[in-house]
Design a protein around this nucleic acid. Structure first.
Lengths: 212, 212
DNA sequence: CGTGCGATGTATCGGTCCGATACATCGCGG
DNA sequence: CCGCGATGTATCGGACCGATACATCGCACG
């Protein structure tokens, strides 16, 4: 999961570890607390060993002649390689069952802008199926085994069931939206509605290697 | 976390591993998928080594004279010890910050029937604070950094923000409920509303070691 | 009658990720 | 001038997962 997220983020721009963590936290804030350095740094090492990222030189643009002053040692900047981009595309393509658990789905969803529509649809439907199963399990417990459980546990199940139903509805909207048309957000005029991304970094690509 | 849940469950009745996993899955179904045996068995070993649980004899009640037929080898039944109960009480008492993350809170909540009211309140408020912080973080991102993120990521944040707001409201109700009166469920006439648990296993205790 | 399959049941191994901890530098306010 | 919070890199032990292996039981189907 972390591997996927790092490769995804580094495609927008090269970064060093600390920065990476901040961006990761901002992008995935909705689904997980914060990436630990205890996972981040070893993973960076692993990705580098695999040849998917490389260390890049500091201060690439505006190469002024201010070299020796406060030499800025430390600050290892990482950059994704061509193999890394391939790896990322491959990880997107093989959306297995682990893609549908809470964390896995969230991370994949966060990079939907780099995922082709067919895969987006596949992931959304896989996730929906998984949540529907969880929902049925909770309904079973609340129905059949309700007497065996204390009131607090039942309340917890109810709250969980509610969250499941809500997520299924959310997914339904996203799926419908995805099928007809391409707008990412649900029809919600007012906030940041139909605006496309107007930022510079990558010419996104949107559809990657789709067959006609 | 697993340690806590196992000690909590074994207080209701002795069980073997497989059964334990099923009960765990039923009780915690709302918050996590299913406990892996890769965590369960090592943890059982650890708890046994610490003296908090022991192996118990098979078929304790209804000791018929059907011994040698299908000897039922395997099936290690575990039973909590007095030290184990102390340990559980101690784990409840020291509700630290890790008690407020998603999993930790859920597990603690599932055993609120064995937790005194003061601690219940403390945990609920700690959780609320944590969720409020997450909510503020998401609002910040959706407000200030919205242009930097693509529409899918924003949609994810919106969904997460919605879940936060909903959970805060849920916690508010539970806290209010906890403060005045003792009913575990929110005032919801209709389903399994005011019914107390009417089952046999443990004479619950409800308030454990509360000081007047 | 047998046989095969799904549920029950115990167990290990490698790998991912977390939480605590350590340490060093930079800029700024008191 | 000094301390403190933000920035920044790094390691270690431990918790938990997913895959895998293996053995038994009951029963349905041929």
């Amino acid at each position: 999961m972390l591997e996927f997220a790092i490769l995804g983020l580094l495609q927008e721009s090269p970064m060093h570890g600390y920065e990476l963590r901040k961006e990761l936290t901002a992008k995935l804030g909705a689904i997980r607390a914060a990436i630990s350095y205890g996972s981040l740094y070893p993973t960076l090492r692993r990705l580098q060993a695999a040849g998917w990222i490389t260390e890049a030189a500091e201060t690439p643009a505006t190469a002024e002649e201010v070299p020796a002053l406060t030499s800025r040692r430390g600050r290892v900047v990482y950059k994704i390689t061509a193999e890394g981009k391939e790896r990322f595309a491959q990880l997107i393509a093989q959306a297995g069952p682990e893609t549908y658990d809470d964390t896995g789905f969230g991370v994949h969803f966060a990079f939907f802008a780099r995922t082709d529509q067919a895969t987006r649809l596949r992931i959304l439907e896989g996730r929906r199926r998984k949540i529907e199963e969880r929902r049925e399990g909770l309904r079973d417990v609340l129905g059949r085994a309700a007497e065996r459980l204390d009131a607090y546990t039942l309340e917890l199940q109810r709250h969980g069931l509610d969250a499941c139903e809500r997520e299924v509805r959310w997914l339904e909207e996203l799926i419908a939206n995805e099928r007809s048309g391409r707008a990412p957000t649900v029809p919600n005029p007012g906030a940041a509605g139909g605006r496309r991304e107007d930022n510079s970094p990558p010419p996104p690509g949107e559809t990657r290697n789709e067959r006609p």
